[in-house]
Design a protein around this nucleic acid. Structure first.
Lengths: 195, 195
DNA sequence: CGCCGAGTTGAACTGAATCAAGAAACGTGG
DNA sequence: CCACGTTTCTTGATTCAGTTCAACTCGGCG
């Protein structure tokens, strides 16, 4: 375990205390997914948190009308999980899919609770993850409620400029909650304004 | 402390272990708000979690266009807080207001972290609160992305039938992310169908 | 009794969806 | 490395859900 993003991430977030890290790493496995491959499907129980070492994931649902809605992207250094499914032991309502060839670390979710009990630093780390997640979700709700397609797109650019280059437009549209056609028109309009 | 919802709630969620409960209760204060009174305003830092002993609260934001968006309601036995503000020590982007005369218990948010460290039962309780919150938020996002005004309203009725009777329609509309006029029309249409 | 906010209804408007068709980009196999 | 087929992206025409604005009703409360 040397110059992996994962270990760097852990030490900078939990500290360098050997014991916890050892315990954590001993419960992790590594797994690769080819572009297009699914990590999880709607109806399955989510058993892991996936840490993205390299590549890009998307998490999405398909509604009763058959439309996809992307909940979040996860590039390098991000976690992806369906905490709801894990925690309440319910079938997930989401899909998780690799948008690029992706290398992930799998963390058993029960481990999160166990380590929280035994190690204060880890507890605080987990707490931060959860609060960040909440913050992120609240932001999306506010946005969906109040922003126009154009505003959402501009917000996306501001928040995730790097993703813009890696994610096909069709997926950005799905994340923003608009159709690809609308996004195309928004972009056209923005280009016109900036001319 | 006898037949309060609060103590019942705590014992049934954390257990009857005297020590933690004592510690918890000793850090709580009780506070009443008149109908219309604000518990928190946008820009202030949120310092407490409010447990609703009796009454009803709403949490909402005002966007740059001056429109209100209700994030959640909190009737009896619910917690209301801006975890984001507390945890990251940032000014809140929300208002909290009493929709009825309301009695609340105030819990210092730092206490949550402290008690999590010292008591496993409390840690699990806090974890459950956070996961529930996340579940709730995710549900709203899915709904905002995929459901029509009518579907959202029906969903609201199913989820919170009791609130429907206590909350003025104008606030229900704000929660659903539609105008009061639209909600009125949705209701009219539903009445027509069920005739 | 009169006022005021909540709710309803109507008409015009609008942002985004839908449907359709063509252009550009992509990747896969020969 | 090219050719072909499949997505992705763009553009146009049309439709639609929900907003906006305005007028009117209703019910509670000082």
């Amino acid at each position: 375990m040397n110059n992996l993003r994962f270990t760097t991430y852990l030490t900078s977030n939990i500290g360098t205390d050997k014991a916890v890290l050892e315990q954590l790493l001993s419960h992790c496995s590594i797994r690769e997914f080819k572009k297009g491959e699914f990590l999880l499907s709607q109806g399955e129980k989510c058993r892991y948190s996936f840490f993205v070492e390299r590549g890009l994931l998307r998490q999405f649902s398909i509604d009763d009308k058959g439309k996809e809605h992307i909940i979040q992207f996860a590039p390098e250094n991000w976690f992806m999980s369906d905490r709801e499914s894990v925690y309440f032991d319910r079938p997930s309502s989401y899909f998780m899919q690799a948008l690029e060839d992706t290398v992930t670390f799998l963390l058993d979710e029960n481990l999160f609770l166990e380590l929280s009990k035994s190690d204060t630093a880890f507890l605080e780390f987990n707490n931060r993850l959860l609060h960040n997640h909440i913050r992120h979700l609240q932001r999306r709700i506010t946005q969906l409620q109040s922003a126009t397609a154009e505003e959402r797109y501009l917000d996306f650019i501001r928040m995730y400029p790097d993703l813009l280059l890696r994610v096909p437009q069709i997926f950005v549209a799905s994340y923003l909650g608009i159709t690809p056609e609308s996004l195309s028109r928004v972009r056209k309009e923005l280009a016109r304004k900036n001319r």
